[in-house]
Design a protein around this nucleic acid. Structure first.
Lengths: 242, 242
DNA sequence: CGCGCTGTTGATCGGGTTCAACGCAAGTGG
DNA sequence: CCACTTGCGTTGAACCCGATCAACAGCGCG
C-alpha cells in the first residue's frame, strides 16, 4: 500500500485533476502512474437522455465512470415488458467486469457525462491492481444490497409505498446530505413517468395517480412535472412501508 | 500466480480433501498453506431446516461455505411482510464481506451443512490473497446478475410466469447438467409453499393454484407435495415469460 | 384418537391494470 | 402568428388478476 498523499502531488493528469471519480470513484484506487496510463486512453463524453450506452447482449468494448447524470439499467422480456433493474449515479463505475456480454441494457436517463476507457486497459489494470478490484467489489456489493432492497419493494409493497420509496431513493442519491437532515428538500426527478413505472413494476397511470395522491395529501408538491419538493421527509418515510 | 497443480498435491487438510468448496467454491483460490491455516479454525456443522444462520442486523462473527442444502436470504418489513431476496446453493460463500452487520436474514431452507470460519480469519486472508477476493467478486457479480433477473420476475411477470420461472430456477440449480438437456427432470422443491410465496412476492394460495394449474395442464407432476417431475422443460420455459 | 402443520380449493373482494379521453407545453411549418 | 402535431402527463370507467377470508384434506405425531 503506497502513501495516499502522493495522490495529491503532481503527476495527476489534467483530465483527472478535478474529477470526482478520482476521489469517490474507482480511480481513487489508482496510483499516479496508473492514472496517467489510463488517462491516455480515456475520453470524456456527454450524451443526451435516451442514448443507449450499452446494448443488451451486445459485446462490451469499453467501461466508463459516470461523472454526472443518471444511468438506468433495463431488462426487457420478449413481449416488450420492461423492468429497470438498477440506477447508477456519479461516480459509479459502469460496466460488467469479467464478461464480454452485458446482462442488461444501459441507457442515459438524464444528460450524462462519462469518462470511458477501452475494455482491455481496465482488465489489465484489474489484473495488476488488487486495490482497483477491491473498489469494484465494494461497488458491486453496494449494488447487490440495493438490488435486494428493491426486491422487497417490488415483491411486497403496495403501489403507494413503491412510489414513496422511489422518491426517497432519488432524494437520497441526488442530495445525500440534505436527505439525511430533517428539513425540506427539493430535487428534479431524473426519470419520466414511464421510467418510474418500469422501475416500480407499475403502469404510468398508477404512478401518476399515486403522485397526485401524495400531492393532494400535502406530502409533496410538484412543479413542471419533474421538480419535487418534500416538506417533511419523515412523512414520506411513513408512507414508504419501511 | 502459483501452479494450480500443487492444489492436488499433498498438504491438503483432511477436512478439505473431499470438499466441493475447494474445487468450485472460494477455497479453490487458496494455496495449500492457506488452506491449512484456514482449516485450523474452521468447523463443519449440519443444521436443520428453519435454523437461523445469520440474524438480520446482527453482528456477523463468522462466514461459511455452503457444502450442501439451500439457504434463503430474507428481508422483512416492519409489519411482517417478508421477501426472499436470494437463494444460495453449494458451494456458495455465505456472508457479507466488509460489513459487520448483515443486511438480510439467512436461514436454512433445507437441511444444510456448512463449513464456517471466524470473521477475522477470512478478512485477514482477503487482505493477503487477491485471488480470494477475486473469487468473492465473481460470486458477488453472479448474485447481482441473479438478483436483477429476479427483479424482472417480481416486477413484470404474472403469477403463472413467476411460478414457472421459479421451477426452472430450482431445476437449474439442483441439477444443472440435466436441466441443460432436453429430456425430463425431477427434483425436490427445497422450499415450502410459504417460502415460494415469499420468494415470488405472492401468497401461498396463489402459488398452490398455479402449481395445480401446471399439474392439470400436464406440464409437471407432483408427488408428496415436494417432488416435482418436469417431462418437457421447454414447455415450462414457454410459460416462464422469457 | 385428537392435534398441529402444510397444502388445497372455493367464494368474494379490491388494488392495479387496461382502455380511453383529455390537458398542456414544446416544437414545426405554413 | 397561428394551426397542427407530437410527447408527456393526468383523469375517469370498467375489468380482472391476485389477495383475502374461510373451509377442508392429508399426514405425521404425541
Amino acid at each position: 500500500m503506497t502513501d495516499r498523499q502522493d495522490i495529491h502531488s503532481s503527476g495527476i493528469p489534467a483530465l483527472c485533476a478535478a474529477c470526482e471519480a478520482r476521489h469517490r470513484g474507482v480511480c481513487g484506487a489508482l496510483e499516479p502512474a496508473q492514472l496517467v496510463a489510463l488517462s491516455k486512453t480515456s475520453s470524456k463524453q456527454r450524451v443526451q437522455p435516451g442514448a443507449e450506452l450499452v446494448g443488451d447482449e451486445e459485446t462490451v468494448d469499453h467501461y466508463s465512470n459516470i461523472l454526472s447524470g443518471v444511468v438506468k439499467l433495463t431488462k426487457t422480456l420478449s413481449d416488450g415488458r420492461q423492468q429497470i433493474v438498477g440506477l447508477q449515479f456519479a461516480p459509479d463505475f459502469l460496466g460488467r467486469p469479467f464478461r464480454s456480454e452485458s446482462a442488461a441494457n444501459a441507457e442515459a436517463a438524464t444528460e450524462v457525462s462519462l469518462c470511458s476507457f477501452p475494455r482491455a486497459t481496465i482488465e489489465r489494470m484489474l489484473r495488476e491492481s488488487p486495490q482497483l478490484e477491491h473498489r469494484i467489489l465494494t461497488q458491486t456489493l453496494k449494488e447487490l444490497d440495493e438490488a435486494r432492497d428493491w426486491m422487497v419493494t417490488l415483491g411486497r409493497k403496495t403501489a403507494a409505498e413503491k412510489v414513496a420509496s422511489f422518491l426517497l431513493l432519488i432524494a437520497r442519491n441526488i442530495d445525500p446530505a440534505r436527505a439525511a437532515g430533517a428539513e425540506g428538500i427539493s430535487f428534479d426527478l431524473p426519470l419520466t413517468r414511464a421510467d418510474i413505472a418500469d422501475f416500480l413494476g407499475l403502469t404510468i397511470e398508477t404512478v401518476s395517480r399515486q403522485l397526485t395522491r401524495l400531492r393532494t395529501d400535502g406530502v409533496i408538491s410538484i412543479e413542471h412535472n419533474r421538480q419535487v419538493f418534500v416538506g417533511n421527509l419523515s412523512r414520506l418515510e411513513a408512507r414508504s412501508g419501511i
